[in-house]
Design a binder for these strands. Sequence first.
DNA 1: CGGCTTTGACCAGCGC
DNA 2: GCGCTGGTCAAAGCCG
Length: 277
Amino acid sequence: MEVERSNRPSVDLNLSIGSSLSLCFFPGDPQAASDYQQQPPIGILKLELDRASEENKKLKETVADMVNKYSALRSQVSRLGTPNAANSSDGGSVSPATNLKRKRDSGGEKESTSSGDELNWNSRVREDKMKPKISKLHVRTDPSDTRLVVKDGYQWRKYGQKVTRDNPCPRAYFRCSFATSCPVKKKVQRSAQDTSMLVATYEGEHNHGRQAHQPPAAANKIPAVEVGPVKSTKVDERLESSPELRRSLVEQMAASLINDPAFKSALTAAISGRMLR
DNA sequence: CGGCTTTGACCAGCGC
DNA sequence: GCGCTGGTCAAAGCCG
């Protein structure tokens, strides 16, 4: 989608190992980069950390903005009744299996296939107007992890589990347990094609916010760079005298970025933008 | 003890 | 009517 690409976050993929971190942390500032390469004191490392946090924050804002624009665009596409535009697994698509019961309830037509992608577009659009909002979320997990848990910041109560015909992996049914009046339901099932992928299907919209005590798992979390206490000057000295410690610190920072979903999203968008160009 | 998970039973819609 | 299927219920058990 062009809009997505044009709003792509500014993640530069032209990373060369030779340029090292200095070029990442001091873009357009060769003097600072040079100083850093000669001897990076703890103050500069802190500066780098702040810079990385700031960059991370901007990236997250960009991603959030992209999501909003994408949603708006999707709704426009839906209104125009254009097929293929909102199809597939990137979230927001309607699962016919999910709606089967409701379709039956409303006397609607039945698909000739169990696969969701062949669903007639017009009927889907028609259904969207009278069905609760349905969205899909794909989460990659450890295939050996048998729990059907998708952490999204809400509190869920499992009320059923079922093995479905088209997928040997069981499907778990959840209800939002934060508010008894909350109508939202969630179905979680491992993808038949990719067992490391969990597919969560949400029905309806929450009539409450997220719990304060349970933040959306990592979704809104600024990555915690575990550099330990920085108050001591002894730490500075240790860092200065130990290249390994410095490398370890850099690795931790890199790891925290890698583990940050917002950073991953931005990176994915940047990579796909590059490959699809 | 309250909240949650597990799991078999049950229900409704549909095709044959 | 019967069997299949997806979705839900509810009793029992577990856990903090």
